[in-house]
Write a protein that binds this DNA or RNA. Structure first.
Ligand SMILES: [Mn+2]
Length: 440
DNA sequence: AAACTGGGGGG
DNA sequence: CCCCCC
DNA sequence: GTTT
């Protein structure tokens, strides 16, 4: 059974219970479509009814308005040939080689949400190993060793997804992403139940301090390294002696509170406060709580709120007015970004006096970017990178603003007029994955 | 040796 | 540049 | 860190 897909240069790696296999994947034949010029591709948009496209509850309403929007704004362009809700964006996808049912199968196998909830929730048979590797991953991350952390993360993922318990180095070798060094570590874990390296690091001043400092909002590897070399070792040191940015001051002031996870119920309540306030100021505003909340988590790290409006113009004072009101009612307590003339806000909020302070992000996007913005802001971060890399392999580029054809590193085409998350998956030849399935 | 987990934006 | 968002 |  295939548990995970991963695309590499011109191959697809199949993460399976019996180790990994690779299959050639001819991208060039898959993307013949994209070699046509933009006008042609637009004209490929056909007449098939889109009844198969069923937007989720969340975005159904917006999807309809979205269609209208693109008609209005592009009335003089080739987009005008698109009728609302009636075009079949699947002409963008991989129908060009229907005879290749084998490839079709590859596509479905790797990008499908083969993850039924049951399958997704398989238990981790290698907890005894992954819990230790997770410490190494975290430590590497604090040290700014990005790729080392990435490698640990990959090894952890592959161990968690394995359908068998790893009882020997031989078992571990079968998994793609576990090399010599991690094999040695697994051997030690299997023999002694622990890892000296982890014991050592847990009492290592540098590691401990890096972990402590790197959790200050606004402090990354460079700042943490500087603080450490300046001799600071505690949060008190930082408060008293370090030169802090305003963000870091806030991050330090709420250090403990911001570490705490937010119960889903509280995120719901926070979302309602923001939504009610915003809609009272701007009727017709669309407000959706995204992030880990939309992915269905019971506990969230922060609150992510996405907004759009048919009159959205990112240069208006729409978001500033909402922020001001939320500040006035003492919901927003601190700002981490400027609040004038902005469409992206980061700050700190408090649901009610006495409650913990929480990190909150609010973003306002133009309506025609809704689908891409929703996909981006729902994440996960890992999922975003994965799907954006896939888009890149197809000579496309996906961002929170648009899905576009990529002619070269710098030259990009007009946005594909996607009007829902479903259509983004469709254009990319991926089977739709619900938000819960993107929690990877 | 170089890619790998991208693309964008605020301070 | 550094850090952040997902 | 691992893989190509
Ligand atoms: Mn956030």
């Amino acid at each position: 059974m295939v548990l995970e897909y991963e695309v590499e240069e011109r191959e697809i790696v199949r993460r399976g219970s019996e180790g990994d296999t690779k299959e050639a994947f001819d991208f060039s034949s898959k993307v013949t479509f994209y070699k046509k010029n933009a006008k042609e591709t637009q004209s490929l948009l056909s007449q098939v009814s889109s009844s198969q496209i069923t937007p989720s509850q969340d975005c159904k309403e917006i999807v309809e308005s979205q269609c209208k929007y693109s008609l209005e704004s592009d009335s003089d362009s080739e987009n005008a040939s698109i009728s609302p809700g009636k075009y079949d964006i699947s002409s963008y996808s991989f129908q060009l080689d229907p005879g290749q049912s084998k490839k079709q199968n590859i596509k479905r196998t790797y990008f499908a949400c083969q993850k039924n909830p049951e399958q997704l929730k398989t238990s981790n048979l290698n907890e005894h190993i992954t819990s230790i590797l997770e410490v190494l991953e975290k430590n590497s991350h604090s040290q700014g060793e990005k790729w080392r952390a990435f490698a640990y993360g990959k090894a952890i993922r592959v161990l968690k997804n394995a359908k068998f318990k790893v009882n020997s180095v031989e078992d571990a070798k079968k998994l793609h992403g576990i090399g010599l060094k991690i094999q040695e570590k697994i051997q030690e874990i299997l023999e002694t139940g622990q890892l000296r390296r982890v014991q050592l690091e847990s009492s290592d001043e540098r590691t401990v301090t890096f972990n402590l400092f790197s959790q200050v909002f606004g402090a990354g590897p460079a700042t943490v390294t500087k603080w450490y070399s300046q001799g600071f070792r505690t949060l008190e040191d930082l408060k008293q002696k370090a030169k802090l940015t305003y963000q870091q001051e806030i991050g330090l002031a709420y250090y403990e509170e911001l570490q705490q996870k937010i119960p889903r119920e509280e995120v719901t309540q926070i979302g309602k406060i923001v939504s009610d306030t915003a809609i009272a100021i701007v009727p017709g505003l669309k407000v959706v709580v995204c992030g880990s909340y939309r992915r269905g988590r019971q506990e969230c790290g922060d609150v992510d709120i996405l907004m759009t409006h048919k009159k959205t113009n990112c240069l208006t004072d729409l978001l500033p007015r909402i922020i001001q009101e939320l500040e006035k009612v003492h919901f927003l307590t601190d700002h981490l970004t400027k609040i004038e003339n902005t469409d992206k806000y980061m700050g700190v909020c408090q649901r009610a006096p006495g409650m913990p302070h929480r990190r909150i992000d609010i973003k306002l996007f133009p309506r025609h970017e809704w689908a891409c913005a929703l996909l981006y802001f729902t994440g996960s971060g890992h999922f975003n990178r994965s799907i954006r890399l896939w888009a890149r392999k197809l000579s496309m580029s996906l961002s929170e603003h648009a899905l576009v054809r990529r002619y070269s590193e710098t030259e990009k085409g007009e946005p594909v007029p996607v009007k829902s998350e479903q259509e983004i998956f469709q254009v990319l030849g991926l089977k739709y994955q619900a938000p819960e399935q993107r929690d990877i």
